[in-house]
Design a protein around this nucleic acid. Structure first.
Lengths: 194, 194
DNA sequence: AAGCTCTGTTGATCTGTATCAAGATTTCAC
DNA sequence: GTGAAATCTTGATACAGATCAACAGAGCTT
């Protein structure tokens, strides 16, 4: 494994505070995979079998509403975790799609390997608590933004903090993430300063 | 402490799988408190100093949007946890209000006592992971319901699974939880069958 | 490079829900 | 129990943003 890739993976788990030996052992679990643009990595109804760390590329988690429109829950990109976490942990069918929006390189581990982390390495429960807490806070934040802000406010806020990686993907995915139509997104893009 | 109260608290922590002795020790941490209707238990800007288990009554977590309207994030009632969790854990000022909507009886522990649980009792990290995962799943679910369903659909869904405890509180809180005005809630209440 | 598909732009119209308003009803305090 | 305050109901109106539609570019594919 490339040194840079090791750094990216270890950095994603820095809260586990792994010892030097544990870190080397841990890195040995991760298997590389390349996914090309537009590939569905997980589909609704199938069980997620991989927990990923992203090296390169952008992926989106979404589902379809009753009219067939994509509703984007979130994105992942270099340095992020990726995968359908609840399906992965519970071995239950996924309620979401996971799609590579650009050509991507990732590393992954399996459910059994994931479960074993908590027994093998003493710092992992701590990692789990911190990551869960962080995710939870983010979800509540987003819920509030959706329910209290206007389209224009959500747009401005998003553009202000939009990471560089998301600027390369089609606008319609950003619109679907911000709960507005591509038309509304386009109008804001061309009329609002941020 | 009443036997019934012990049962309620232990049941809220059943995932920690405490031994008999640990359970008795653990119960000793909890302090009872009675709160009367309309009391603000936590305010925006103040740090939450208590993690509660509810014995009786209904409480709401909310904040005010820029027009001053309450936006309700969630409710707690008998058997639930209560408190502003992220403020409590991080010792940071709360972004939310916590209000008793009815006369309430609760038990609580302090931040230091909470932190110590994870060192004292081996099953507590497991409890933490399970509870966080459960909460996270619920938040994503709600986010989706807000962003994909119409007011009427949210109303029907809510009424179908509305716990008995929430039927005693004013409708305007339910409306604020469902992201609609009290007028819209009232109209649905009197026109829709569920 | 020509053709096709996907994506983005812009305009016209429609619609669900908020807002404003005025009464009716319930709840609460003294 | 009586008055005041809070809550709920119902109607009229307004508006943000969706929908429908038509076209203009971009980007792939062969």
């Amino acid at each position: 494994m490339e040194e840079l890739h090791k750094q990216i993976i270890l950095n994603a788990f820095k809260d586990a505070e792994l010892s030097e030996e544990h870190a080397q052992d841990f890195l040995g679990l991760w298997k590389p995979v390349s996914i090309s643009k537009h590939t569905l990595m997980t589909e609704v109804g199938k069980v997620e079998r991989r927990f990923y760390v992203v090296i390169k590329g952008v992926q989106a988690v979404y589902l379809l509403d009753r009219k067939g429109n994509k509703v984007v829950i979130g994105f992942s990109f270099d340095g992020s975790y990726s995968g359908i976490y609840d399906s992965f942990v519970d071995r239950e069918p996924s309620g979401y799609f996971l799609e590579a929006l650009t050509d991507s390189e990732l590393y992954y581990i399996t459910p059994d390997e994931y479960d074993a982390l908590f027994d093998k390495y003493p710092g992992f429960d701590r990692w789990g608590r911190i990551v869960h807490g962080f995710l939870l806070k983010g979800r509540v934040q987003r819920e509030l933004e959706i329910s209290t802000l206007t389209s224009e406010e959500r747009f401005k806020l998003f553009m202000k903090r939009c990471p560089q990686q998301l600027r390369q993907i089609p606008q319609k995915y950003l619109a679907a993430y911000l709960n507005m139509t591509p038309e509304t997104f386009s109008r804001l893009m061309n009329s609002v300063t941020w």
